[in-house]
């Protein structure tokens, strides 16, 4: 069996890729996909810890995370759709009416 460190390092790398993606991308959909990557890397961490510790709580939380991520995806895509109808773009650089 692989040591838990490999799983943790992999999920940390995936999480970092997600964070960097959120910070560098300008397209709302791509940013949202990077956020999903972050959530799923957390799921990997939780499952790894859960197997390592032999406790079920981590896997329970993974189910909650998946359900919440699905709800977030539904709401998020609806928001992007409503936005696209009015602005005809999903590029964040062009969505800037609100500023001081």
């Amino acid at each position: 069996m692989l040591s838990i460190n490999y799983y943790l390092i992999l999920s940390a790398v995936l999480f970092t890729i997600g964070v960097v993606g959120v910070l560098t991308r300008r397209n709302a959909i791509l940013i949202f996909m990077c956020i999903e990557l972050m959530l799923n890397s957390v799921n990997l961490t939780l499952v790894a810890f859960s197997a390592y510790l032999g406790s079920v709580e981590g896997q329970v939380l993974v189910f909650f995370v998946m359900a919440v991520a699905a709800a977030e995806a539904a709401v998020g895509l609806a928001i992007v759709l409503a936005l696209f109808r009015n602005h005809v773009t999903v590029n964040l650089d062009e969505i800037n009416i609100l500023k001081w």
Partner: peptide
Amino acid sequence: ESNEAALKYFLLGAFATGFLLYGIALIYG
């Protein structure tokens, strides 16, 4: 303006949720 507020709140809120969850995972570990 309302569309824009919702999108900004959603993207940044979901981003912050990622950090919160990672924190929970590490505390659990």
